[in-house]
Amino acid sequence: MASSFKTVELSDTPFESQGLRFLTIKTPHLQGRGDICLYVPDVKEAVDDLPIYILLHGVYGSAWIWAMKGGAHKAAEKLMNTNTIDPAIIAMPSDGLWGDGSAYFSHHSKSFDNWIVNDVVTAIKENIPQAKNSIATCIGGLSMGGYGALSLGAKFPEKFKAISGHSSITKLEQMALFVEEPLNEYLDNNNLPDVIDCIKLNKDKLPKLRFDCGIKDELIEPNRLLHKELKALNIDHIYEEFDGGHEWPYWIKHVEKTLKFFNAYK
């Protein structure tokens, strides 16, 4: 089968470890290359339809960070080995590596949203045999990645079965807490900068939705407001608060909730 991409590089099995694979593709949506770190479970039977669970990283990070700083693949492996969740591919793409963070939507003539929603899934299906006929995709993320997951899941509801956010940015203006790029750099092509506006766009056909935030997180009040707005709109969702701040120990602890949630609705 012909590739959808001009160039594709996939890591070689003899040099891989911990079930992690690395994929780099060239795509017009990024006007260059994009990276995807993948956890592909070792399943005894031959399968070609494993679900794809996308985890989006936050500012400053890249494709490696959910695995190499968050241990997401180890959390997934533990849940699969104990039959808590069924086998699934964990896809951890870069955000396109613009500035301190692209925010996962289109600007500067680059379609960071289409990179995630279309290219990542297509590249996995074309290059990972266990996902060749996958029909279930879920999307989650932390901080800016939570903003991306909530926004993209709401904008493209037909693409995803479930959405999960940890410590999510809920309005574009909150990016200013983390990035040095001026906010007007993001706004040249985005008419829906707030998560609630994306959700209102397709409120009657949203994927299953959950999000959480640490009570010591600087984003706790914006997350509480989003929860309140969703309740006012009678939009079904799960919102939870836990001890912790905007930090890796919190995300490492709670990523299992995302994986279990995805498993329930894949």
Score class of each variant (00 low, 15 high):
residue 189 N to L: 11
residue 155 K to S: 04
residue 127 N to W: 14
residue 113 D to I: 00
residue 129 P to K: 11
residue 164 S to N: 09
residue 111 S to K: 07
residue 105 F to P: 00
residue 144 M to A: 15
residue 154 A to F: 06
residue 155 K to C: 02
residue 130 Q to P: 05
residue 148 G to F: 02
residue 180 E to F: 05
residue 183 L to C: 05
residue 114 N to P: 00
residue 108 H to N: 09
residue 122 T to W: 05
residue 104 Y to D: 07
residue 118 N to L: 08
residue 187 L to F: 05
residue 121 V to D: 12
residue 138 C to W: 02
residue 147 Y to H: 03
residue 138 C to G: 09
residue 99 G to I: 00
residue 205 K to F: 04
residue 151 S to D: 03
residue 105 F to H: 11
residue 187 L to T: 11
residue 130 Q to H: 14
residue 123 A to I: 00
residue 159 K to A: 08
residue 126 E to T: 02
residue 165 G to V: 03
residue 107 H to W: 06
residue 162 A to G: 07
residue 115 W to G: 03
residue 140 G to W: 05
residue 109 S to N: 14
residue 128 I to M: 11
residue 148 G to E: 10
residue 121 V to Y: 08
residue 116 I to E: 08
residue 189 N to T: 06
residue 126 E to A: 07
residue 183 L to D: 05
residue 199 I to A: 14
residue 182 P to M: 01
residue 164 S to T: 05
residue 134 S to F: 07
residue 130 Q to D: 15
residue 133 N to W: 08
residue 199 I to G: 15
residue 183 L to G: 06
residue 105 F to M: 06
residue 97 L to C: 06
residue 101 G to P: 04
residue 170 T to E: 15
residue 128 I to F: 11
residue 177 L to G: 12
residue 96 G to D: 10
residue 173 E to R: 12
residue 147 Y to R: 03
residue 103 A to I: 00
residue 98 W to H: 06
residue 113 D to C: 02
residue 195 V to L: 10
residue 185 E to Y: 09
residue 118 N to Q: 13
residue 151 S to E: 04
residue 183 L to R: 13
residue 180 E to K: 14
residue 102 S to M: 00
residue 111 S to A: 09
residue 125 K to N: 04
residue 186 Y to T: 00
residue 185 E to A: 05
residue 154 A to S: 15
residue 143 S to M: 03
residue 204 D to F: 07
residue 149 A to D: 04
residue 114 N to V: 00
residue 164 S to M: 11
residue 98 W to K: 09
residue 178 F to S: 12
residue 149 A to H: 04
residue 159 K to E: 10
residue 146 G to M: 13
residue 129 P to R: 09
residue 115 W to N: 03
residue 196 I to A: 14
residue 205 K to L: 09
residue 139 I to E: 10
residue 158 E to F: 03
residue 173 E to Y: 10
residue 130 Q to T: 10
residue 145 G to F: 01
residue 136 A to K: 15
residue 148 G to S: 06
residue 98 W to G: 03
residue 136 A to T: 03
residue 128 I to H: 14
residue 195 V to E: 14
residue 173 E to C: 08
residue 166 H to L: 15
residue 140 G to T: 08
residue 103 A to C: 12
residue 131 A to N: 10
residue 105 F to Y: 08
residue 153 G to H: 12
residue 117 V to W: 10
residue 152 L to K: 08
residue 166 H to V: 01
residue 188 D to I: 00
residue 201 L to A: 15
residue 188 D to P: 01
residue 193 P to S: 14
residue 201 L to Q: 15
residue 176 A to D: 13
residue 154 A to H: 14
residue 190 N to T: 06
residue 153 G to V: 07
residue 155 K to P: 00
residue 135 I to P: 11
residue 202 N to S: 12
residue 114 N to K: 13
residue 101 G to I: 00
residue 123 A to S: 11
residue 140 G to E: 08
residue 121 V to K: 08
residue 116 I to M: 08
